[in-house]
Design a protein around this nucleic acid. Structure first.
Length: 473
RNA sequence: GGCGACGUGGCCAAGUGGUAAGGCGAGGGUCUGCAAAACCCUUAUUCGCCGGUUCGAAUCCGGCCGUCGCCUCCA
């Protein structure tokens, strides 16, 4: 098996990745908090995690992925109250919307999507363990993690809180903490809030606790990879490490992989700038989900990616380059045996893609390999040297690497209504025949009229020495 | 203030000590009735700036300039 290297936030180095169990890999990915529709920044992260999942699988590992749904926290509670709905009724449409977005962007399903509200007993059990071991304390019906008891707190994020806040004893909100640095594991219920019964009275879990308890339930006390956006490094993931390792005495996560943020027009997305697009808003503006996925996948995950309408347009054009090669190939005639050039190009593609992915998911290099194939195949087509079985072999090679990218086959992204409206194949063939007749009699006004008519219907025509070809654009 | 990331052609972007991938865009050519498509060629002697290490640096070290992120619940 090829050596896989990842950049581990824990230690901030590129290191060889060796799964805890040979041949299998466990991945926990922080999911959405379902108080609203996901914005495209959230979706970049989810698409990246999908890319990671597909890459691991492509490299021969069996993946078990868990993505949590945070369906109880300050925001979900506040907004459900404002809406006059129960927590479940309030979050349900956003959960549905989240899954629709994933589907639109062809994100593969994770193995588990645990919901916080369905794992309260596991969280309570873990908090009890922390209390028993002296890593937590109860205060006014809430439970806090005692950071002073955790020697290596700050290992993941590199933040040294002792310099900043130790001993200040700040009362945060209405909760009383021993130390300003301490974070909440269990929040006592306030008036009118949804709550669960616990040894400390009615309340609800803290956010960090949700992820620790659910990841351990599905992946065990120690597992391979934990992902999330960079903003989660501190405090969320730092706190997960603290509470998890304090509870079990074992290493929690081997490799932490964090993806950078999506920017919009060069700025961080924010409500005030009005650049917090949802996927549905972009679709309404006529942007193809396929181009969005390509854009997200084409940049390195640890690099900020600037989303602009120009950049999605460029992404769409890049995809078109692959589509056009496919199109030309499909109508190329076979001459002689398999092309040695194509054999070599296919061999090289597989190697280059796998190597690029194994090197900290270098998507740009992997895609460069795809375009290398496109160039090589184009040349063979141009030379009329496409041989027996070459067309199928190239399509199969593309399909093989597309297990990772999930964008290369336009057929996968066809709108249902595409074939329904517009001209039938037979009608198009008929018009093309008319056009050929007009061309033959040098009636170019007529032939151009037919071409324009077809183009008006979204049918693209290409004339070749072997005759015209067409496709739906 | 603390911690961290980044600055590569018109735009996007790879590169982890050996002499600048790839995509978009642009220009020229071939082909074509004209287009379109494709193919070929061109588009960074240079990688923010200044020093240093080295036979050799975009890649390592130091300084400076600039952009950005995190610093208690935002992917």
């Amino acid at each position: 098996m090829r050596e896989i290297r990842f950049y581990n936030t824990l230690g901030r180095t590129l290191e060889t990745f060796v799964p805890l169990q040979a041949g299998a890999v466990q991945v926990y990915t922080c999911g959405p908090t379902v108080y609203g529709h996901a914005h495209i920044g959230n979706l970049r992260t989810f698409v990246f995690e999908d890319f990671l999942r597909r890459s691991l699988s492509y490299l021969g590992l069996e993946v078990t992925q868990v993505m949590n749904l945070t369906d109880v926290d300050d925001k979900t509670i506040q907004r459900s109250n404002e809406a006059g709905l129960s927590l479940d009724d309030y979050t349900a449409p956003f959960i549905q919307s989240f899954f629709e977005d994933l589907e639109t962007l062809h994100v593969e399903r994770a193995e588990h999507y645990p919901r916080a509200t369905e794992h309260i007993p596991e969280m309570i059990a873990m908090i009890e363990t922390l209390l028993e071991k002296g890593f937590a304390y109860v205060s006014d019906g809430s439970v806090f993690f005692r950071i002073a008891a955790d020697d290596d707190y700050g290992r993941l994020s590199g933040i040294d809180l002792s310099q900043q806040m130790r001993g200040e004893r700040v009362a945060s909100d209405e909760y009383e903490k021993e130390d300003a640095r301490d974070f909440v594991l269990w929040k006592a219920a306030k008036e009118g809030e949804p709550s669960w019964d616990s040894p400390w009275g009615l309340g609800r879990p803290g956010w960090h606790m949700e992820c620790s308890a659910m990841s351990m339930k599905y992946l065990g006390e120690s597992f391979d990879i934990h992902c999330g956006g960079v903003d989660n490094i501190f405090p969320h993931h730092e706190n997960e490490v603290a509470q998890s390792e304090s509870a079990t005495g074992k290493p929690f996560v081997k490799t932490w992989i964090h993806s950078e943020h999506l920017m919009v027009d060069g700025a961080k997305m924010s409500k005030s700038l009005g650049n917090q697009y949802t996927l549905k808003e972009l679709l309404e503006r006529g942007i193809e989900p396929r181009a969005i996925r390509y854009l997200f996948v084409s940049a390195h995950y640890r690099q900020k990616l600037n989303f602009t309408f120009d950049s999605v347009a460029a992404a769409a054009n890049a995809l078109e380059r692959v589509d056009k090669m496919r199109f030309r190939l499909a109508s190329a005639s076979e001459n002689g045996g398999p092309s040695a050039t194509i054999t070599a190009a296919i061999e090289r593609l597989g190697q280059d893609v796998a190597n690029a992915l194994a090197n900290d998911l270098n998507a740009s290099e992997a895609l460069a390999a795809v375009f290398q194939l496109v160039r090589d195949v184009n040349k063979v087509i141009e030379q009329g040297a496409v041989g027996q079985g070459d067309r199928e072999r190239v399509i199969a090679a593309l399909a093989d690497v597309d297990r990772v990218f999930g964008v290369l086959d336009p057929g996968d992204w066809q709108q249902d209504d595409d074939a329904a409206d517009g001209l039938s194949d037979e009608a198009i063939e008929g018009l093309l025949a008319d056009r050929q007749a007009a061309r033959k009699s040098r009636d170019f006004a007529e032939s151009d009229r037919i071409r324009d008519e077809l183009q008006g219907q979204g049918i693209l025509i290409e004339d070749t020495p072997q005759g015209p070809r067409w496709r739906r654009g």
